[in-house]
Design a binder for these strands. Structure first.
Ligand code: NAD
Ligand code: NAD
Lengths: 208, 208
DNA sequence: AGATTGTCGTGATTATTGTCACATAATTAT
DNA sequence: ATAATTATGTGACAATAATCACGACAATCT
């Protein structure tokens, strides 16, 4: 069984904890977190141990404290805005997603040559790409969502990198050429659909 | 360095090969695939070896043959349609994405209580959820995209499972309760953005 | 023909990741 | 008080995955 890696697991724990906070629950246990997300309790404890997060012997974990520790370890305890490059199909979907407001992710502006209507609530302004540089002078953003067509993904990456952006999520299907000190999380949705096909082939009955 | 797992790597190879086919290139080498996607050539050969894909000693790989073998191993050599549940922000983005037509993934119908305009080209019909059962009687689909709000994700999953769907991609942020013989690929976009934040914390300068 | 080159294929090795077993501590029960 | 119970925390172990080292082999060169 494969739960991706310890960072994505931390983020999953955080997500569960946020839900517990919302429903007013104050205390939880590795075993009960396990029930929610299907990751073995021992793995959860091991992860916590690795990140120096400790609970109370016998008493489980205080939900608020644990959530705070998770956020600190994930780097989500500060304000970390994103800019969105490409306000097309995917870009709009992300910009309009309400769930981000509850979490820590915030998209503060979008850039697209087609400057059109902006119907998200709260509204996210859409500017022409030429104004990226000026915008970043006033707003010290370090993270960007790349939702542009494949053929401009590399050039937009290069421009953003030159402007000081170092963290990227890239939805285009090409592999970007990335300097050592930048981080790109490639999310290829077509690939995600295809792996579903693979794992449901008759011949592949292994779990995950 | 971590390239996720061998299945996602196969899918990446496939994607590169498709691009090579389009540009009319007939022959390629592990080393040149490596240049495209940054996966070491030895890893690529190891993967091919694992899946029983063989090239020509000294001569590299025939692009068309290799692509065909990759498709067979991924289960993409047949027609494997998806239905889309939830035609909201994300659902629309997926339905309108042109790239799927070039690959093997096909969304043939969407279901949403708000049956409205359908502006994708080629058009994907949008039906009310009540007609899912009837639709599946006529169309033996085995794969679904779940892009519904969190609070109905489990009930829609259960319904689809009861109708025989076994492969899912789930965009909702809750972990579904899934029987042994179904496969769910959870894609949590908020988590994907958050990991970017983690990996760009000053304290985390490890690559990936 | 024989030497040389470039690339593949894979067993052996190393690194990473997950699981298990159990010592430890807090709480409750007797 | 003492024992029993129930979680946590972590080192030891096992499984999985990535890298390396090298042999095989076809093509090209002399
Ligand atoms: N939509 C999906 O479901 C989906 C699925 C898989 C992959 N992708 C990938 O995601 C990326 C975006 O897909 P999409 O469907 O949103 O495409 P899209 O064409 O709908 O949107 C792209 C947007 O980028 C804008 N753009 C073009 N050049 C730009 C520039 N220099 N700066 C800023 N914006 C620019 C365009 O005007 C457009 O609005 C593509 O690379 C695509 O391959 C999308
Ligand atoms: N949009 C994003 O960027 C984003 C990001 C992260 C996570 N998500 C998750 O993805 C899911 C979809 O997000 P979204 O932004 O597209 O939401 P959305 O509200 O825009 O779309 C959901 C759609 O599902 C439809 N729906 C409701 N009940 C249904 C049912 N029983 N059967 C079929 N359809 C039904 C609604 O009418 C709506 O059109 C949510 O779970 C959300 O948490 C979305």
């Amino acid at each position: 069984m494969n739960y991706k890696n310890h960072v994505t697991r931390l983020s999953q724990y955080k997500s569960v904890l946020q839900r517990l906070v919302k429903s007013g629950i104050e205390k939880t246990y590795a075993e009960s977190i396990s029930k929610h997300i299907g990751i073995p309790a021992t793995q959860i404890r091991k992860d916590f141990s690795l990140f120096g997060i400790r609970g109370n012997k016998r008493g489980g974990y205080n939900v608020l404290e644990l959530l705070e520790e998770l956020k600190i370890n994930l780097g989500l305890n500060r304000d970390l805005p994103f800019i969105l490059i490409g306000y097309g199909n995917l870009g709009k979907a992300l910009a309009r997603y309400h769930g981000f407001h509850e979490g820590c992710v915030r998209i503060i502006a979008a850039f697209d040559p087609k400057v059109g209507v902006l119907s998200s609530i709260p509204p996210i302004p859409v500017y022409p790409p030429a104004s990226i540089s000026a915008f970043l002078k006033d707003n010290p953003v370090k993270h960007a969502v790349l939702a542009v067509p494949d053929d401009v993904a590399q050039s937009m990456f290069d421009e953003l990198y030159a402007e000081g952006i170092r963290g990227f999520i890239n939805f285009s299907t090409i592999a970007l050429n990335v300097p050592e000190d930048a981080y790109v999380n490639n999310v290829d949705l077509e690939l995600e659909l295809e792996t579903v096909i693979y794992y449901t082939k008759e011949s592949n009955n292994k779990t995950k």
